[in-house]
Each structure stands twice: as C-alpha cells, then as structure tokens.
Design a protein around this nucleic acid. Sequence first.
DNA 1: ACCTTTCGTCGGCTTGCACTTACGTAGGTA
DNA 2: TACCTACGTAAGTGCAAGCCGACGAAAGGT
Lengths: 108, 108
Amino acid sequence: MQAVLEAVVEPRRREILRLVREHEMLAGSIAAHFPDVSRPTVSQHLRVLRDAGLLHERRDGTRRLYRTRPEGFAEVRAFFDEFWGDRLQALKREAEREQRRRDAGQNR
Amino acid sequence: MQAVLEAVVEPRRREILRLVREHEMLAGSIAAHFPDVSRPTVSQHLRVLRDAGLLHERRDGTRRLYRTRPEGFAEVRAFFDEFWGDRLQALKREAEREQRRRDAGQNR
DNA sequence: ACCTTTCGTCGGCTTGCACTTACGTAGGTA
DNA sequence: TACCTACGTAAGTGCAAGCCGACGAAAGGT
C-alpha cells in the first residue's frame, strides 16, 4: 500500500506503467522512451515498480521484459473507494433533501 | 493529480483524511490525534491536503473546521481505473454506470 | 578464450520533504 | 486597551529520493 503510493507518485513511473500496460516491453525500449533520463535511472524506477508489485518481470537471455500487474492496484483502489463511496452517499442525502423540498413546495 | 498523489503518499495525511471523512473537525482536534508530531506540522499537512483539493476549510471565528472533499479523488481514481484487470472489468463498468447516473442527476 | 550486448547495482551528489522552534495574525473577552 | 485563544507561517535542520557515471554480471556470438 505505502510502497504502491510511493511508486506511483513519481511521474515517470506512472508513464512506465502506461507504456507496458497492454504489452510487455524490453527494459532498454522503456529507457529509450525517456531521453532526458539515463538508462540506470530508468532501471531503478523499474525496480521500485517491481518491488511495489506493480510490474511483472520475465527474462529472455540477458534481456528483461516488463508488463504491468493489475492486481497490484487492488489495495490502493480500495483506499480511494473509501472516500468515493462517501461522495455517493452524500449525493444521495442531497437528493433526498431536494425531494423533501419539492414535497414541501407542493403542500403550499 | 500530481498534487493529490503527493498529498496522499504521506501516511499521516491519509489518516487525517479518514479522520474528517464523516464529520468536520477542528484543526486543533485533528492535531490532538497525533501526539508524536507538533501542531504546526499538522497545520502544514492540512495545507497540503487543502491545496490538493482533498479538504474543505470552514472558518468559525478564530477556529477552522475541516472535512474531506470526495470530488478531489475523481482524477486519481480515473488513473487507477486504467490499470484495473480484465477480471474486474465488470466492477469497473458498474462503477462507471453509477457515475453516469450521478452525472445525469447533477444536470437536472 | 574474447568481445559485445543488455541490463542491474554502487557510490556520490543535489534537491526536496517532514519536522521543529519561534513568531505573526485574527477573532473573542475582561 | 490589553490579553488570551486558535490557528497559520517562516527559517533552519536532517534525511530520504532521484539522478548520474562507473562498474559488475550474465548470456550469446565469433
């Protein structure tokens, strides 16, 4: 949970997650998408994402292929749902209050 | 989006969000829930959360009351939805349908 | 055996964040 | 007016995170 949030707060790491969301990609190809950052830096980002459970790593010879691991998002999603659910409930209360207002107006 | 993630990555700030999820609370009462940290520190946390759009501030004299602002989570929630696996596609559609229903209600 | 490719790791540097104490501010009260 | 309460803000400190160049490891080709 904490590791997932720490991994996702870095913009380049979010971009990596989007890059390998649909198909797996070579570590080098991923690094090539970030010309303003060095390859070792991208390698460190990949490690953070992997340790957080957001990336899956597959080895083919000396090469490594990565893809996103959707299950890793479950916990953090549940956290955000805590607050989103309240919003739905609040809107329901709002609707009910509006309904009562309408009813009161009809009784005039 | 970036501000929301930066706000939420800090554990105490997540705890604050849970504290004022249902009722608004005085800044001092919130600070009292964190005996291991000073009051100015909590005040700074409140500012970060507020600037990220996750907290609503109401003033009553010299006192300030805070409560969570669920709408602030919309963007980050959409981001995590991108990565939700096919297994949970049904749940995602359910949530989106509920959101569309809510939007339709707001347009009245 | 030797070299190349592909990638991770290490040591260091710099920047940014959470934290503290000291101070400032705005509203209420005697 | 003077004072107290309930806050936020400012300045400084320590530590962790992101970055780089240099190095190391592992597999494959010649």
